[in-house]
Amino acid sequence: MSLLDVREASKNFGSLAAVRGVSLSVRAGELRAVIGPNGAGKTTFFNLITGAFRPTSGSIHLDGRDITAVAAWRRVTLGMARTFQITEIFPELTLAENLRISFEVASGLRLRPWISRATAAKLHRDVEEMLDLAGLAAKAGRLVGELSHGDQRAAEIAMALALRPRLLLLDEPTAGMGEQETYDVAQLIRRLHRDRNLTIVLIEHDMRVVFHLADRIAVLDQGSLIADGTPAEIAANAAVQAAYLGKPNDAGAA
């Protein structure tokens, strides 16, 4: 059974149809890339999945359960974590504090007015482990707002991972990164997918990253899903090429 099921989801902003009747299934353990030109509706699609917006029509299902009406914060507790195209972190707290808060919330402690020493020690260990995994251990005590762009992006991924998600949604994780950083992040995503068997949906503009990592690729153009298939199928798809070459998309070709 698929972990995530989007059925005929649409989102209109006034007269603009940002997402048009998109259906997509993601199996557990899959790494699915979502690509498409600027303004295609990729981020909006993520916003529908994660509950930032209610779809104008259509439905979202997780584990076969209809979660269309479930609040965004509750979807996180159901196992959905995301990062944003523009990094969303706690800039005036240290990197360790950013992760600490993530682990506290993930451990169901968010309303606790105090915690035991043992719990605090466990949280401390979790933070250390995550810092190592993300390759950020040396920067634990730095204010996260003062880190380099690449480190901030990595920090946000680490915060999402701290939530121990079953489904991780990454919105252009390598945006604005240099060669080396892009490579590092791609390797991190690959490890998460392979070693932890994490289900990942990835919006990405860097085609090397996409074709290197993805099991399947979905292509959005002007709000519509114009293709969905293996990397080889997508590379050979005429409609996709048309969309990327900027020609007006001929729906008949899809």
Binding site: W73, V76, F84, E88, F90, V105, L163
Partner: peptide, 11 residues
């Protein structure tokens, strides 16, 4: 610090 991030941490 960041209301959106807080919400998408599950708060």
């Amino acid at each position: 610090e960041n209301e959106r991030r807080a919400r998408f941490l599950g708060i």
